[in-house]
């Protein structure tokens, strides 16, 4: 069973519905107790970095997630803000992230022609053969900040071009993060979630 963290940072309904659509059991969790009962966790989220970090702390999820990921070494998938929180921090705020991935989340460099937030369907160039055979690599993005552009390639699962090249999918052992929204990316998102599940939960 996959647990989807509901910490008041956005609607998690579509994430849960997408899992049920592809036949994977999941449920929303609003309290950090019994987190260890789940085989995998999804951390979604929209909004500001600091708000997200503070909500996780005030709800008690922060420590429970550290236990789940660092001690139990079980799989976690971060989506959008959820993925950004995996880094050490963000230029958007002053709170610390989990620090599972190195560096700070950064803002798109400003330019006249570039609209921020990046809000559109865009292609993800996957680097790992475990993801390169998907039927389509177009996903829906909504964000103004992104994973550090100079992230060590060993953590980069996929890149996207929007004015600059940035890591749009990241991975480190049991930790996976997508900047885009699989739950807003129709059947392409379903296929991707299925793949993540296959790699991390059905191994």
């Amino acid at each position: 069973m996959i647990g989807i963290i509901d910490y008041g940072c956005g609607n998690v309904g579509s994430v849960q519905n997408m899992f049920s659509k592809i036949g994977i059991w999941s449920e929303k969790i609003a309290k950090p107790e019994n987190l260890t009962d789940y085989s995998g966790i999804v951390l979604p989220g929209v909004g500001a970095f600091d708000t997200g970090a503070r909500r996780l702390k005030s709800t008690g999820f922060w420590d429970a997630l550290k236990q789940f990921v660092e001690v139990d070494q079980k799989p976690i998938l971060g989506i959008c803000l959820g993925m950004q929180l995996f880094f050490e921090g963000s230029d958007e705020g002053s709170e610390a992230g989990f620090g599972w991935l190195p560096g700070n989340v950064q803002k798109f460099s400003a330019s006249e022609s570039l609209r921020i937030p990046h809000m559109s369907w865009n292609a993800v160039d996957f680097k790992s053969p475990r993801y390169t055979d998907l039927t389509a690599n177009n996903f829906y993005f909504v964000h103004a900040y992104h994973a550090p552009a100079n992230l060590d390639p060993m953590y980069v699962l996929g890149t996207t071009l929007y004015g600059e090249m940035f890591p749009s999918a990241v991975e480190h052992n049991n930790i996976t993060g997508f900047q885009f929204h699989p739950e807003k990316s129709l059947v392409y998102g379903m296929e991707l979630l299925k793949r993540w599940n296959l790699i991390h939960l059905e191994k």
Binding site: G13, S14, Q16, N17, K21, K184, S185, L186
Partner: peptide
């Protein structure tokens, strides 16, 4: 609106 968004797999 929340119900609709929960059922929607697109922007």
């Amino acid at each position: 609106l929340e119900q609709i968004a929960g059922e929607c797999f697109m922007p």
